[in-house]
Computed example of a mutant assay.
Amino acid sequence: MRITILGAAAGGGFPQWNCNCRNCAGVRSGAVRARPRTQSSIFVRDDQAADGVLFNASPDILEQIRANPALQPNRRVRDSAIAGVVLMDGQIDHATGLFMLRERGSPLPLWCTDPVEQDLTQGNPILRVLGHYCGVQRERIVPDGTPFTIPGAPGLAFRAFALASKAAPYSPHRDAPVPGDNIGMLITDRTSGRSAFYAPGLGEITPPLFDVMSGADAVFVDGTFWTDDEMIALGLSKKTARDIGHLPQSGAGGMIEWLDQMPANARRFLIHINNTNPILDEDSPQRAELARHRIEVCEDGVTLEI
Score class of each variant (00 low, 15 high):
Pro207Leu: 09
Ala168Phe: 08
Asp222Ala: 11
Pro154Asp: 08
Pro177Ile: 13
Leu87Ser: 01
Val77Met: 05
Pro172Arg: 07
Trp258Gly: 01
Asp114Tyr: 12
Ala81Met: 07
Pro15Gly: 00
Glu299Ala: 08
Asn124Ser: 12
Thr240Tyr: 13
Val44Thr: 13
Val129Tyr: 03
Gly11Val: 09
Val221Phe: 05
Ile65Asp: 07
Thr4Arg: 06
Pro169Arg: 10
Pro125Glu: 03
Arg28Tyr: 00
Ala196Lys: 05
Ile126Phe: 02
Ala153Asn: 05
Asp243Glu: 03
Leu101Glu: 11
Cys134His: 03
Asn182Glu: 14
Gly223Phe: 03
Gly97Asn: 01
Ile61Asp: 01
Met213Cys: 09
Thr303Trp: 08
Asp217Pro: 08
Gly245Arg: 05
Arg159Ile: 01
Val86Ala: 10
Thr191Tyr: 12
Ile5Asn: 00
Gln286Ala: 15
Ser165Asp: 11
Ser195Gln: 06
Met100Cys: 13
Gly215Ser: 13
Pro248Tyr: 05
Gly105Glu: 06
Thr96Tyr: 13
Val53Cys: 04
Phe43Pro: 05
Pro207Gln: 01
Pro154Trp: 05
Ala241Thr: 15
Asp47Phe: 13
Met255Ser: 06
Ile5Ala: 02
Gly235Glu: 14
Arg66His: 15
Val86Arg: 14
Glu296Arg: 06
Val116Phe: 14
Leu120Val: 05
Gly97Asp: 10
Glu257Lys: 04
Val32Arg: 01
Asp60Ile: 07
Pro115Phe: 12
Arg28His: 00
Asp119Gly: 09
Asp79Gln: 01
Asn274Ile: 12
Thr206Gln: 09
Gly184Tyr: 10
Ala164Met: 09
Pro151Asp: 06
Leu280Ile: 01
Phe43Glu: 00
Val77Glu: 07
Ala288Arg: 08
Asp60Thr: 14
Pro208His: 05
Thr303Val: 00
Ala266Tyr: 04
Ala167Asp: 12
Arg242Gln: 14
Gly90Ile: 06
Ala167Glu: 06
His293Tyr: 13
Pro169Thr: 12
Ala233Arg: 10
Arg104Glu: 06
Val27Ile: 11
Pro169Asn: 04
Asp211Val: 15
Arg140Lys: 08
Val129Ile: 12
Leu236Pro: 08
Leu71Val: 10
Ile232Ala: 05
Leu202Asp: 05
Ser40Ile: 14
Asp222Ser: 02
Ala199His: 07
Phe220Thr: 14
Gly84Asn: 03
Met213Trp: 11
Met231Lys: 11
Lys238Asn: 15
